[in-house]
Every structure is written in structure tokens, then in C-alpha cells.
């Protein structure tokens, strides 16, 4: 049945697709190593964040924290804001997002289109600054409700209850799960579920390593680690630079016809690394990785065309994941 009562009912249950051309070729007789992509861009607002947004709003409604007409406040670099804006519109809330000024133009346009209000935080401070600024605004407006994706257990629970079970249902032979590390909600929730069911599974994080400008003069004593983060859920954690992320993003289009955002390029890079290790070791592997969003919101960066160095330059200073 592909008929639903409202767009909110379409969140989750995304397709898992095989990547036979990108997967490394095992020698005859050797155990197969296969890559799979979970297409979270098929959610209503085009990203994995629809799951977290819906779960966080529902949890706040159930707890009596949110009532019709309330104002939701959220620090976000984009996708969570867009997802929350859609959910807020359908459920009757006002949304105020605190967003770093160096995110792509499409994100701002989409947020405004859904009716969200945007407060920008300085580019130099990145998401860390957006979080700090949102906490300050929340203190000034005690009647506003901050769902706070970085510390809201409903964010991780969305993945424990949906993303994890979907993956296991569609790929019972899964050996590795690879996803991007932002709020850490996807990896924490999906990772915990899969570890319970497949104890030997490897949970692999890929985090973006931005251009130097993004880190700027960021003070090491004032860093930020999301409250949701629990390192014991992860097996490994990779840092993927802009060049590798762009290279893999382009490879996914060219080889498998998948048009993804740059954070997925970073995730694919880590997935290929663990796939090739398995191949070298002669181990069977079913590596599933998460496509957090498609490339549409990043076309204005110009990083899909030209040389890799051009793309790297275009993304310098941008929060591309």
C-alpha cells in the first residue's frame, strides 16, 4: 500500500539499494563484499532529519511540553531545521532556527519557504556557536521550547525504533553500518539497535573535516561534544576531508547514478575503506551506509562540476555536511 493519510506518515521506511558497481570485486571463490545505500533523501523534506524532527516533536507533545501555537527554537546547520519547519507547519507551531551564516543558500530559502524564522550565528563559530547562541536565546524566552537535537534522546530513539529495524529487516546479513557524525543521533540509535541484534557488527562513523577557515581560531577549551554521544556505541571513527568527500560524491553519480550531498560522499569514503579492508582480509562483508540527503541543496556551491581543486576551493569555509 502506497497511500498515506498525510506527509508525516511517509517519514522513514526508506529504500536500501545495492551498489554492485561501486562494491569491490572479490576474487573467484572469495567471500563477497557488498555495499548498500539507505536512501534517506526519500523522506518528505529530503533528509534523514525528518525522523528526528518527528520523534522529538511527538515526544514533547506527549510530555506536555508543546502545545498548539507554541514557539520551537532550534540550533541547526540546516536539515534538522527544514524537517522541523515542515513538522511545525503541519502541527501548528512557530519555528525559530539559529543557523551559522555559512551554510548553503538553498537551506535558508527552504526554511523561509516553510515559514521558519532564522537567526544567524557567526560563520567563525560554526555549529558550536549556534548551539551556544540558542541556549542564550532560550534563557531569554522561557516560554519557547528548545527541542535540542544534540541532547534529545528522542533523536536517537527515532533511529533505534525505525532506521535500525529497517536495516536489519532489509539486510539480515549486515556486517557494517556507516553514517555521518553530526548530532550523533543516527549512529547512536541505529548503532545501539544493531549491536543488540548483531553483536559482531561494526558501527563506523564518518565526520566531515572542513576547510581550515571553518575551524579558524576555534578554542580547544570551548569545544562541543553532543550530549547524545556515547563512544562505546562506535567501533571506529573516520575524519574525511573535503577532497575525498567530493571525489566520492561524484563517483556515486557516475558509477551508481546516485545524486547525493557531500556528507554522503564522506560516508561513502569511509564505507569503501572498510569494504576494501574486508576484501583484503578475505572476509565476507555487507556494508550499509546512510545517504543523509541528496545533492539538490548544494548545487549553488558549484562543487559538482569543475576540477576537484575547484570544488575544494568552492567549499572552503562552508559547512558542507
Amino acid at each position: 500500500m502506497a497511500r498515506f493519510e498525510s506527509v508525516l506518515e511517509v517519514v522513514g521506511d526508506t529504500p536500501l539499494v545495492g551498489l554492485p558497481r561501486l562494491s569491490p570485486t572479490a576474487a573467484p571463490g572469495a567471500p563477497p563484499v557488498r555495499l548498500w545505500a539507505k536512501l534517506e533523501d526519500r523522506n518528505p523534506t529530503g533528509s534523514v532529519k525528518d525522523r528526528a524532527a518527528l520523534w522529538m516533536v511527538r515526544a514533547a507533545e506527549r510530555a506536555g511540553r508543546l502545545r498548539p501555537g507554541d514557539t520551537i527554537l532550534e540550533p541547526t546547520s540546516g536539515n534538522t531545521g527544514i524537517a522541523l519547519a515542515m513538522v511545525a507547519k503541519l502541527r501548528g507551531y512557530r519555528l525559530v532556527c539559529v543557523m551559522p551564516e555559512n551554510v548553503s543558500a538553498e537551506r535558508t530559502q527552504l526554511l523561509r519557504m516553510y515559514g521558519a524564522e532564522i537567526i544567524t550565528s557567526p560563520a567563525a563559530g560554526g555549529s558550536n556557536m549556534a548551539v551556544a547562541q540558542a541556549k542564550q536565546i532560550a534563557a531569554e524566552h522561557p516560554d519557547w521550547v528548545m527541542l535540542f537535537q544534540y541532547g534529545n534522546e528522542a533523536n536517537a530513539r527515532a533511529h533505534y525504533e525505525t532506521t535500525g529495524p529497517e536495516l536489519l529487516r532489509d539486510l539480515p546479513t549486515i556486517t557494517h553500518f556507516v553514517a555521518g557524525l553530526g548530532t550523533t543521533g543516527t549512529l547512536m540509535g541505529t548503532g545501539r539497535y544493531l549491536r543488540e541484534k548483531v553483536p559482531e557488527i561494526e558501527i563506523v562513523a564518518a565526520e566531515p573535516r572542513y576547510g581550515e577557515q571553518v575551524y579558524g581560531l576555534r578554542n580547544i577549551d570551548e569545544g562541543y561534544v553532543p550530549e547524545l554521544y556515547d563512544a562505546s556505541v562506535l567501533s571506529r571513527r573516520f575524519s574525511v576531508g573535503t577532497r575525498d568527500a567530493v571525489l566520492r560524491t561524484r563517483q556515486l553519480v557516475e558509477v551508481e547514478g546516485l545524486f547525493v550531498g557531500f556528507s554522503t560522499g564522506a560516508v561513502a569514503h569511509a564505507a569503501l575503506a572498510v569494504a576494501h579492508e574486508a576484501l583484503k582480509a578475505g572476509r565476507r562483508a555487507d556494508v550499509a551506509f546512510l545517504v543523509a540527503d541528496a545533492g539538490w541543496k548544494y548545487l549553488s556551491t558549484g562543487a559538482y562540476g569543475g576540477t576537484l581543486s575547484d570544488a575544494e576551493e568552492a567549499l572552503e569555509g562552508q559547512l558542507w555536511a
Binding site: K49, T76, S77, N79, T80, G126, S127, N128, V131, Q149, Y150, G180, L181, G182, T183, G185, E207, P208, R209, Y210, V214, Y215, R218, N219, I220, G223, Y224, V225, P226, S239, L319, A321
Partner: peptide, 10 residues
């Protein structure tokens, strides 16, 4: 070896 300050995403 790469040293970086911790940065959040999302």
C-alpha cells in the same frame, strides 16, 4: 597525525 578542535554538526 591531524589535530582538530571538536565541532558539532546537525
Amino acid at each position: 597525525v591531524t589535530i582538530l578542535p571538536a565541532v558539532a554538526g546537525g
